[in-house]
Computed example of a mutant assay.
Amino acid sequence: MKALGIAATGMMAQQTNVDVISNNIANANTTGFKSSRASFTDLIYENMAREGAVTGEGGTTRPAGINVGMGVRTAGTVRLNTQGGLVQTENQLDVALDGRGYLTVNMPDGSQAYTRDGSLNLSPQGQLVTQDGYEVAPGIVIPDKTVRVEISETGIVSAFVENDPVPVEVGQLTLTTFINDAGMRPLGKNLLESTVASGDPIAAVPGEPGVAILRQGYLETSNVDIIRQITDLISAQRAYEMNSKAIETADQMMSAANQIK
């Protein structure tokens, strides 16, 4: 009986679905987090009678075939790159990306990663870094004795040093965009990396057409819709229970068949 294996694939698929939903809920307060959804496809079909097959001497044909599916599999997890809300922090080193794009981060191994998390800090050398100490590219160093930092919507970073009323321009924050944002691979720590699916990184300046502007003193919140996630969780639970019931029913049918004398 194929029902046991088919229902088992359904249970595994819904387990993956619950895992994805749980991760979304867990990151409901993670800065710059983008929710994901599990995507599924049906498995190969067993063709027991082909459509259009001749059924009689008069040339009649079968209008519909007999195809029994083998279940379902997880095709992938799709990241939903909608804009999250902006929350004011009044921290001069916090920047929110309002629109498309990512901050570029230089990793210790020489590679680059990308993030929407604009919770920036200063290293002991005065460099702009992420919360985990990774340098934000291009490297920007804030001078010693700086009393205030200003970051414009177009990414220009200026520092007011001591009592000098004229700011010193210390660098330009740039952004990176991708043809297919959903194809980027999550690394954890609010970081993503480019892949063949995402396409090559495209350097851009904040404020260019189709590119985000920077909001100093703000952070982008997670785009997770808790109500939607809870609804999806209930739906996944019910689907899991129905697949479990299908296995139970198939077991009862097999048991009944075994008792026939």
Rank of each mutant, 00 (worst) to 15 (best):
N180Y: 07
L219Y: 10
A13N: 01
Q15G: 08
G126H: 08
G76R: 02
P124K: 09
G188L: 13
G85Y: 08
N223S: 12
N243H: 10
V211T: 11
D98C: 06
Q14A: 02
V87W: 03
N47Q: 13
P201T: 13
T31E: 03
I226S: 00
L4N: 09
T154G: 02
S198F: 04
I247D: 01
P206D: 08
T174E: 14
G118K: 07
A250K: 10
A137T: 14
N91K: 03
E241K: 01
M184H: 00
R62Q: 14
Q83D: 09
F178W: 15
T89E: 04
L214D: 03
Q237K: 00
G207T: 07
S152Q: 09
V166Y: 07
R50M: 05
V136K: 02
N23K: 12
L103D: 07
T30R: 01
I213K: 11
G71E: 09
R238D: 04
G188E: 12
L4T: 15
L122R: 02
I156F: 05
G118S: 06
I234C: 00
G210I: 10
T60M: 09
A8M: 15
A26H: 09
V161L: 02
I140M: 01
G217F: 05
S152V: 03
P209Q: 06
T16A: 03
Q172T: 10
A204W: 04
L43P: 09
A212C: 11
P138K: 11
V54T: 10
I230K: 00
N106G: 08
V78N: 02
V149I: 14
L219N: 02
T89F: 03
I227S: 07
L214R: 04
D232Q: 03
D144A: 13
S36Q: 14
T60Q: 13
V129M: 04
G188A: 11
M48F: 13
Q259C: 08
T154P: 04
D98M: 09
N243S: 09
T16F: 01
E193Y: 02
L233G: 00
E57N: 08
N91S: 05
N180H: 11
S36H: 06
A3L: 13
I247R: 01
G133K: 06
Y45G: 07
V54G: 02
P143E: 11
D132I: 06
P108W: 05
I151F: 05
I21M: 03
I230V: 13
I140H: 00
A236Y: 00
N27L: 04
T177I: 15
V211D: 02
N17W: 01
T231Y: 00
Y240H: 12
Q237H: 01
T9I: 04
A204M: 06
P143S: 11
V224A: 02
Q88M: 13
I140S: 00
N243R: 05
Q125T: 15
M70N: 15
Q83R: 09
F40Q: 02
L214A: 06
